[in-house]
Every structure is written in structure tokens, then in C-alpha cells.
Nucleic acid binder design. Structure first.
Lengths: 212, 212
DNA sequence: GTCAGAACCGCACTCGCGGTGCAGTACTCG
DNA sequence: CGAGTACTGCACCGCGAGTGCGGTTCTGAC
């Protein structure tokens, strides 16, 4: 209500630091293996300080997921806008964005790539309804964004065979998620880039300009 | 060394029961959220009994992954053999097996589909070297199996454009993994089947019989 | 200058869970 | 009958999540 939430108080910094530390640790080791003691030691505060900011550990996780959703949302939107400004062709813009997105997904703040939503989905039975909704929201947003562009591409380059554009959008998400898991365990050559190349080839085959 | 390991003693039954219970619980809630107390309560034994069978909780996880690897290995091999006996065409046999594999992956013993290896990959930083090797082994096995068949298909139907068969094999695995995550959180329509249909379409496009 | 509120510190304590140690026991097989 | 297998029962430890609450410091509003 007041103006206090306008200036970046030092409380917000601490909160952000805790979330940053938690995000890295959770992507690396998982939610349960990340202890509050560990986080507060790195942040240089006490346990009381932690519980001042977050009611419990689960609340921290939810906040993390909310922030992650917002970050991805803004990032994807920006990538699309930039790509669409650079490429007049809708298909080119989509392919460009997909590559960038895959690269961004691979370049996590941790040593191994990972996705918070995926991590949570394999832990604690999604905790509760709210948690599941947060994960779902992120998935649906990506699907909508990609689907929109697929529709534009389909309008310009009508595919010979009927394709389910929702499924095609999901495919991009699934490939990124799957490639991330594989790259988490298989060190040497990153799988992600090769997979995105294949997906791009697929899209080009479906929306072949020569058809019409 | 002795003959004791030949007959199915009651000890092996208890051990199997613990592993079955643990597998379901871990796929549902994750490794850390699955407590030993919970497992022994369901199995009807005491804590001492648990530690008689497994040195610690991590050993149980590794055994689980070993068993899972063996099961998938045998299952995939059998699927391929059956499909290859039914379909003289290598591509048909591969496509048939892929569909079956996706179905099997979706039909887990739990309410939500899931993969032990994926679950572990997002927990505890893969625990240790041995754990990582177990996950890697499973991934590599699937890749080899699929790649072999892709080679046969490529031999019969040479693709117009050069494709990385390893990447194409990885794609199948990535899609299954990704679809599984999505189906874990998105209840209504299963994503897996649609994704496998798309993958099949992709393979058919690559190995189009009309080319040569 | 004071006073409220934000952002913590310190401490004591609970509970669940992983894990240890060890003594005792029932069942089975050679 | 004795040895091993497959446990039970109990006591006990340490760590991590979480609670409760009183005290403290700094900052901005009046």
C-alpha cells in the first residue's frame, strides 16, 4: 500500500540472494538435498532471517518457480520479437528463436543444464495443487507462444499433410526437456544442439516452401 | 558361490517387495521424499530388516536402477525381435517398436508416468560416479539399439540428406523423456502418443521409399 | 528527536528421518 | 546339531525442517 515497495530495500537483496543460491543448488542436487542451513551459510544470515523471508522451504520453491516462469516468459517473448524483426519470414523467425531458446536452456547458472519445473515434477509428487499449476502454466505458455508462430508458418506454407500444431509445439518443449536430462548425465558432446537441428529440419520438411 | 542363490528364498521376496514399493514411491514423490520408515511399514518389517538387505538408502536406489536397466534392456530387445519377426521391412519394425516402447514407458506402475533414471538425474547431483554410470548405461543401450535399426533402414532407404543417426536415435529417447515429464503434470490428454506419431512421421519422411 | 516498521540475530527446543550397534531369535538346510 | 539366513527389538546419534519469542539495528516519516 505504501511507497516502501518502490525502493530496492536491502531486504529484497537478501531475498534475491537466497533465491539465486537455492536455484543453483536445487538444479544441481535437487530440492530435498538442498538444506536451508547451506543456503543461509552462503548468504551470511541466520535461520531466523530465512524464515522471515519465506514461511517454509516449499514457499521458497514456489517463489523460485514463479520467478523462473516470469523470466522464461519475458525471455521467450523478447527472442521472438527480435527474431521477427530480423526475419520477415515467420518460419525463419521461429527456427531462429528455437535455436536461441535451446541455447539459453542449455546455458543454466549451474554446471549441468536443468529445468526447475522438471526437477520439481520428479520430486514430492508436485507438492501440492499450486505447485502443479505453476509448472503447468509454464508449459502452456511455451506451447501457446510456439503454436502461434507455427500457425503463421502454416498460413504461409500450407503443409501437404495435416499436422497437429499443438503436438508440434509440444515436440519442441519435449525435445528440450529430454535433451536437458541427457546432457545432465552425458558430459562430452551436448545433445541439445543436435536435437534442435533435427527439429528445425523437421519443421522445414513440414512447411516446405515448394509446396502450395 | 554356494547353491543358496539358486532357490528363491523368502529373503529375496522381501528384498523384491522393498524394491517394488520404493520404485513406486520414488517415481511418485522422489527419492528424498521416500522414507525408509514408509517402506518398511508397507512391507511389514523393521528398520533392522531393511538395513540387513541394503547397506543404506543409496544402495537401494542403485539396485533399483540396475534392475530397471535390466528390465528395459530385456523389454526393448524382445519388442524389437517380435516386431522384426512380424515386419520384414526394417523401417516398419522400428516404427512398430517405437510405438510399443512409448506405450510401455507411459504405463508405469505409478499413477503418473516417470523414469527412474530421469528422477535420479534431477536429484542429489547423481549421488556419485557409480550412479551416473548406471544412468549413462541405460541411455547408451537404448541409443545403440535404436541406431542399429536406423542403420538398417538407411541401408534400405538411403536418405536424400545426410542425417546423424546417433542424433536421430537420441531424439527418440529425448522425446520419450520430455513427453513423460509433460504427462506427469498435464493430466487430460497424454502427450506421449502424439509425440511418437510425430517422430514416426519424421522417420518416414527421412527414409522415404520413393527416394533412391 | 522519536517512533514505527522492516530486516534481521540468538537461542532453545521439537520432530522426523537416516543411520549405527548389538544382542537375541526363528527357520531351514546339510 | 550347528551354521547360516533373515530377520526383531531397542537404544542412541546427528542432521535438517520448523516453531517460538525476545532482542537489536537501521531507516524513513512526522
Amino acid at each position: 500500500m505504501t511507497d516502501t515497495d518502490l525502493k530496492p530495500r536491502r531486504g529484497e537483496q537478501t531475498r534475491k540472494e537466497l533465491m539465486d543460491l537455492a536455484e543453483i543448488a536445487i538444479l544441481e542436487k535437487g530440492y530435498a538435498a538442498t538444506s536451508i542451513d547451506e543456503l543461509i551459510a552462503q548468504a551470511g544470515i541466520t535461520k531466523s532471517g530465512f524464515f522471515y523471508h519465506f514461511g517454509d522451504k516449499l514457499e521458497l520453491a514456489k517463489e523460485l518457480l514463479r520467478r523462473d516462469n516470469a523470466t522464461i516468459e519475458a525471455g521467450l517473448q523478447q527472442m521472438f520479437e527480435a527474431a521477427e524483426a530480423a526475419h520477415p519470414d515467420p518460419l525463419d523467425a521461429l527456427l531462429e528463436t528455437m535455436t536461441q531458446y535451446a541455447q539459453a536452456a542449455s546455458a543454466s547458472p549451474t554446471s549441468r543444464p536443468g529445468c526447475l519445473a522438471a526437477a520439481f515434477s520428479y520430486q514430492h509428487a508436485l507438492f501440492d495443487e499450486e505447485m502443479q499449476q505453476l509448472v503447468l502454466y509454464g508449459l502452456d505458455f511455451k506451447r501457446r507462444m510456439i503454436r502461434e508462430r507455427l500457425e503463421r508458418a502454416a498460413a504461409k506454407y500450407p503443409p501437404r499433410e495435416r499436422v497437429d500444431l499443438d503436438a508440434l509445439a509440444d515436440m519442441a518443449i519435449a525435445i528440450v526437456q529430454g535433451a536437458m536430462i541427457m546432457d545432465r548425465v552425458r558430459d562430452p558432446p551436448p545433445v541439445m544442439q543436435a536435437q534442435m537441428d533435427l527439429y528445425r529440419t523437421y519443421l522445414r520438411a513440414i512447411f516446405a516452401p515448394r509446396a502450395a
